[in-house]
Amino acid sequence: MPKVVISGSTCRAFTGGVSELEVTADTVGRMVRELDQRFPGLGHHVAEFMAVAIDGVIFQDAYSEKLPEHAEIVLIPKIGAG
């Protein structure tokens, strides 16, 4: 199953300090819903303010993106810039 890594303190506040977990979801959108079911409020926070890195490649607002079976998914703040 894909592994979700939560490196920032903001998201860990939703998980009670849990920094790694496995998910059954196979897309980013399903992962967001699963996270929200397991940690109420986290899904909304991820949807609005976080990007995901899937095996090192950063995706923002990409619900349809597939999560490979053994992928490492890292939640990071959305990146803006100038």
Binding site: S7, G8, A53, D55, V57, V74, L75
Partner: peptide
């Protein structure tokens, strides 16, 4: 990286 992402 320290923020968790592995560079491609």
């Amino acid at each position: 990286t320290v923020y968790g992402v592995t560079f491609p």
